[in-house]
């Protein structure tokens, strides 16, 4: 076995230390070393976005990142979004409007939606479709996904205004 590299990263708020082979992809580290199988391996060629996770505050394709590149980073996966058993607003929006069929792309869609809404909190439908360009749904269920993103934007805006008022 090749030399390993020691890495320390925070995954969903928990500090993790591991010795990894440099060639270990972040997605495999998350799924196989940490058992966080909500992050999916879809195309494995940086096209489909099923493996999207947040690293250092930006959402990336974890099949195209080495685990060693995430050393010292804060990583958030789909498992890290819900709080106290409550789905986060984006997850809830996907649930509410049934924005999935088989569900394989959903973790990546939810992560990419966070990225999209961080840059553009009130997106138009065209902006939503452009913003999710790196995420494929092969059930062709984009229609409800776009609705879910719109709803998520409303939910997040409501939460903001409640927080501001409170």
């Amino acid at each position: 076995m090749a030399d390993t590299v020691a890495i320390t990263l925070t995954v969903n708020g928990v500090e993790r230390q591991a010795d990894v082979e440099p060639r270990t992809l972040l997605v495999h580290f998350l799924r196989e070393a940490l058992g966080l199988t909500g992050t999916h391996v879809g195309c494995d060629t940086s096209q489909c976005g099923a493996c999207a996770v947040s690293v250092g505050g930006v959402v990336v394709k974890s099949c195209t990142l080495l685990a060693v590149q995430a050393d010292r980073a804060e990583v958030t996966t789909i498992e890290g979004l819900a709080r106290d058993g409550q789905l986060d607003p984006v997850q809830q929006a996907f649930w509410d409007v049934h924005a999935l069929q088989c569900g394989f792309c959903t973790p990546g869609m939810v992560m990419a939606t966070h990225e999209l809404l961080a840059h553009s909190p009130q997106p138009t439908d065209a902006e939503i479709r452009h913003g999710l360009e790196g995420n494929y749904c092969r059930c062709t269920g984009y229609h409800n996904i776009v609705r879910a993103v719109r709803l998520a934007a409303e939910k997040l805006a409501e939460r903001e205004s409640t927080a501001a008022a409170g």
């Binding site: 976005g49 999207a52 959402v59 990336v60 394709k61 195209t64 990142l65 990419a112 913003g131 995420n135």
Partner: peptide
């Protein structure tokens, strides 16, 4: 270039 997630890296 690519898509938003690719552009992040």
């Amino acid at each position: 270039i690519g898509d938003p997630l690719v552009r992040n890296r």
